[in-house]
Amino acid sequence: MSTLELLALQPPGWGGNLLRGLANSIQIAVGAYGLGLAIGTAGAYGKIYGGPVLRDLLEVYTTVVRAVPELILILILYFGLTDLVNQILVEMGRDRIQISGVIAGIAVLGVVQGAYSTEVLRGAILAVPHGQIEAARAMGMPAGMLARRITLPLMLGNAIPGLANLWLIATKDTALLAVVGFSELTLETRQAAGTTKAYFTFFMAAGAIYLAITLLSQWGFARAERWARRGEPAVAAGAR
């Protein structure tokens, strides 16, 4: 078959499989990124305002996750997490539940992402001028409103470059789920390549898809940063 026939969207072409894999990859990347941001926001606040015990525990979490290869974390969490959840359920006298590949993938990558976004967000929050927060406190603003109205909007500009990087890492880390047999883009690619023996064609095609995601995301995040930094002096924008 020619390259075009191999990549055709309808069978016997494998293009449709790649796109299905892509949909899975994006689903997991988005879910893991969201979960990571939630963990990261809580973690960053915990590291800055939490008690000493919480701070130390968070430090252990971020250090371990950032020093151990993602592949190994994924394997530990992928097998361990589902096993643990089921053991707890059985202890409680309930039935085992089935944890789908998508949920497990999101949970696993989310925990990894959470460690990185904790650090990114912590740095960004600390970069918010302290006077702004003091002023809001002096006005008697409650803590929740302070976070929503002052800290989070002001830190966004500082955080976006780091968060953009994390999103790119999230999209690429979904490829690691291929090793546990989850059919995302990379595994679909390997299946197509293995079956048709057209290794170059399919690996190149998948590379082009990942690259397109990266370039699109970079463009989007650049716009987002410009938006988040609106009203800031131009010097700050030029520094990056």
Partner: peptide, 22 residues
């Protein structure tokens, strides 16, 4: 841009199996 924009796992497989198929 290409190296940073694609997963390393894919690059490894391309280099090993792709070159191998040649």
């Amino acid at each position: 841009t290409i190296i940073r924009g694609t997963p390393l796992l894919l690059q490894i497989w391309l280099i090993y199996y792709g070159l191998g198929s040649l």
